[in-house]
Simulated assay, not measured.
Amino acid sequence: MHITVFCSAADLDERYTAPAREFAELIGKGGHTLVWGGSESGLMKVMADGVQEHGGRLVGVSVEFLAAKARKNADEMVIAKDLGERKAQLLARGDAIVVLVGGTGTLDEATEILELKKHGLHDKPVVLLNAAGFYDGLLQQFRRMEAEGFLPRPLADLVFFAEDGAAAMAYLEESAAPRQA
C-alpha cells in the first residue's frame, strides 16, 4: 500500500515523535511505501527514517521553493511547481491518507483532502493520528459540523481518528484497496 502522510517539518516533542516512529515502523515492516512531503527535517524526517530503517520505500513530493531541503536518498523524489500541485500529487500517489500533527500547512492539506472526499472526488481512507490529543478540538468541531448539517456525509465516512499508529494501520489495512502494480 502507498500511504500518503501529511505532517510537520518542525522538530517536535517526544509525545508527537514517538507515535510517528511507531507508525513509520509499521509502514516499513508491512512492506508499504511512504508518500510524504519529502523534507529532511522535523516529523517528516522521523517518518522517513523509520520507514527506511524497517524496509519500506520512500516517495517524496517536495516543492520548488523547498527542494534544497528534500531528502537525498528517497527511492523517488518529485519536485512540484507549487503547493497546490504538491497536494494533488500526494493525494494521487497514495492509496490512503494519514494526517499526523502539524501546523497550518498540515491543516490546509487535511481539510482539502476531506473536502475532496466530501464531494466524492476520491474515496481513499483518511486517518487523523490524534497523538497526545492534538486533534481533540478539531474532532469536536467536526462533530458539531455533522450535528448541525454542514457535512453531507457522516463524519465516520470521511475520516477516522486514531489514537496511535497501531489503530491507524489496522484501519488502513481494513479499508484501503492495494495499489495495482
Rank of each mutant, 00 (worst) to 15 (best):
E22C: 08
K45H: 00
P125T: 05
K117F: 00
D164P: 07
R153W: 08
L58S: 02
K117Y: 00
G30H: 07
E148M: 11
P152Y: 03
I113K: 05
G37M: 07
S39G: 15
L91W: 00
G30E: 14
V35D: 01
T111N: 10
L43N: 05
A167I: 01
F23M: 04
L58F: 09
K29Q: 15
L58D: 02
E22G: 05
L128D: 06
E14I: 08
D82M: 09
K29H: 10
Y135Q: 10
A80R: 06
G30K: 00
Y135G: 13
E109K: 04
F6G: 03
A147I: 04
V101K: 03
V61D: 04
S175M: 13
A181S: 10
A162F: 10
A9I: 00
A162C: 14
H2R: 11
K124N: 04
K81P: 09
S8T: 05
E173V: 03
S175F: 05
L139W: 13
R57T: 08
R143M: 06
G50K: 09
P125A: 05
E25Y: 00
G133P: 09
V126I: 11
G84C: 12
L107R: 11
I79S: 07
P152D: 14
V51K: 03
G133S: 15
Y135P: 07
A20N: 09
D157N: 08
D49N: 14
G149Q: 13
V46S: 00
V59P: 02
E25H: 02
R144F: 09
D136G: 13
A80T: 04
A167S: 15
F65S: 00
